[in-house]
Amino acid sequence: PRPDVHPLPPGTHLLYAQSGRIEHVPLEGYDMKKDDAKPLLHLPEKVIIGVAYDCVDKMVYWTEITSPSISRASIQGGEPTAVITTELDSPEGITVDHLSRTMFWTDSVKDRIEVASLEGTQRRVIVDSDLVNPRAIIADPPNGNLYWADWNRDAPKIETSYMDGSSRRVLVKDDLGLPNGLTFDPQSSLLCWADAGTHKMECMNPGRGDRRQVLEGIQYPFGITAFGKNIYYTDWRRDAVVAVDRYAGRESDEFQPQKRTKLYGITAALSQCPSGQNYCSVN
């Protein structure tokens, strides 16, 4: 494998972080084409935690904790570029609002949630209270909602707010352990999470508040991403990407990279942006 950015072929891919690499597995339908898994980029000295994808410019964004920073690179090839390098301690989760061209991230040492333009300008803290171990964060741009999870062992919770941090409220606080991963599926309007404490994967419609279990007995989920009927998550015990059929409620496949070390964030790089617009995309 080459250490710089490998351009990806067209189609939908899973992107996931493993040590200083972002690797990809192409999807054929919902199946992982494991034999075609390859590194997208390799930054040997870094520890990459969160990954997000901008479907408009076909760029991958990631957080990195050894020299805390947020960077991006085109999946069609090119140099990785840092967009945020200051005032970060432990940036973890990251999500992109492709409509308003912004990104949101959590910092588990500063205990806050911030927003900035995709170029790193117009940065602002939007949540800075009542956070202990914020990690996963996910945006639902068409509806203007933001969701995040805090795995605080004393009081884990999943929260939501508008994309400016206003109208903040707790969505889930009961029967949570270590909610490490969070994903939102725009088609079904379901918010789903993977919990390394309860070993469950669960989903709920945030508007209705109905909560239902997808799967139990999972080992140690870290990142999670929804794509169609499947949910894919990274697992710290199995050092693998696991595919779960959401409707059947069972594991359907597993991909274990050759290198045995922890996998972190995961995201689906869609070949096309989902439809939709919001206030910021038209104004």
Partner: peptide, 15 residues
């Protein structure tokens, strides 16, 4: 033209 190791032994990483 920099040389980078790509499949480090278990538990290790870096150039």
């Amino acid at each position: 033209r920099e040389v980078v190791c790509t499949n480090c032994p278990a538990g290790t990483t870096g150039k």
